[in-house]
Amino acid sequence: MSQHTDRAEKSMDKCIEALKANFARVRTGRANPHVLDSIKVDYYGQPTPVTQLAGVKVPEASMLVVEPWDKSSLRAIEKAIESSDLGITPSNDGVCIRLPFPRPTEERRRELAKECSQMAEDSRVAVRNARRDANARIERDEELSEDEQTREKKRIQKLTDTYVAKVDELLKAKTAEVMEI
């Protein structure tokens, strides 16, 4: 593999990783600890991720339990979750915080599936942009003959097709998870 193909593959890998991270934040009826990844708690004046202040457990499919290591941060964590865009009301029992995940309605599941489709489309566009950038670098590379450039572009296209297929697989799996009752 050439440097152009390597560079394009790294760029496309980043697109897939970003899509996986976005999909992890989509709230389905199933409790997923990753929905807390983006929530920051004001801990002694520092915005700190919830996952660094507490253990997050999934005791059942529709419940998350957040157990802070420092019990004095319990209220701050609860406040951060309440003010987030999760749409879940936490219940604080003085020891831990419970987050019940209600089952989404049919209409809400369709909306979530639509959002996932848009995220996947954005990833496909990002993969195609990586292809375009790689092809532009190949065309500017004066060390490559015309035949070598054509071969490189074909390799880049094959790589693009592979990554677009990965995006489609991830979307199919996530849509099935979202639509599951």
Rank of each mutant, 00 (worst) to 15 (best):
Q3I: 14
Q3C: 11
Q3L: 14
H4W: 01
H4Y: 04
T5E: 10
T5L: 15
D6F: 12
R7N: 14
A8D: 10
A8S: 12
M12Y: 02
D13Q: 12
K14T: 09
I16E: 07
E17I: 06
A18C: 13
A18D: 15
A18Y: 14
L19W: 12
A21S: 15
N22L: 07
F23I: 09
A24G: 10
A24S: 13
A24E: 08
R25A: 15
R25S: 15
R25Y: 10
T28I: 03
T28F: 03
G29W: 09
G29F: 08
R30D: 06
A31V: 06
N32Q: 10
N32C: 09
V35T: 03
V35M: 01
V35R: 01
D37L: 07
S38D: 14
S38Q: 14
K40Y: 13
Y43P: 04
Y43G: 03
Q46I: 15
Q46N: 15
P47N: 13
T48C: 01
V50N: 11
V50L: 10
Q52I: 08
L53H: 07
L53R: 08
A54R: 05
A54I: 03
G55S: 14
V56R: 05
K57F: 15
P59W: 06
P59Y: 08
P59N: 11
S62F: 01
L64D: 00
P68L: 09
W69G: 06
D70Y: 01
R75P: 02
I77Q: 00
I77Y: 00
K79L: 04
E82Q: 10
S83K: 04
S84M: 04
D85Q: 10
D85C: 00
D85T: 02
G87L: 00
G87E: 00
P90Y: 04
N92L: 04
N92F: 02
D93E: 06
V95C: 12
C96Y: 11
C96T: 03
I97L: 05
R98Y: 01
F101I: 13
P104K: 06
P104Q: 07
T105S: 15
T105W: 06
T105E: 09
T105M: 07
R108H: 13
R108K: 13
R109C: 03
R109W: 00
R110M: 07
L112Y: 02
L112K: 01
A113G: 09
K114A: 12
K114M: 07
E115S: 11
E115N: 12
S117F: 12
M119W: 05
M119N: 07
E121G: 04
D122S: 10
D122V: 05
S123E: 06
V125E: 07
A126P: 10
R128S: 02
R131M: 08
R131D: 07
N135T: 05
R137E: 12
E139C: 04
D141V: 06
D141W: 04
D141E: 08
E142V: 00
S145W: 05
S145Y: 06
E146D: 14
D147C: 04
E148Y: 08
E148H: 09
T150E: 15
R151M: 11
E152K: 01
E152W: 03
K154F: 13
L159T: 05
L159F: 02
T160P: 08
D161M: 05
T162W: 00
V164Y: 00
V164F: 01
A165T: 14
L170H: 05
K172E: 14
K172P: 06
A173Q: 15
A173L: 14
T175A: 14
E177I: 12
V178S: 06
V178Q: 07
M179R: 11
I181N: 13
I181T: 14
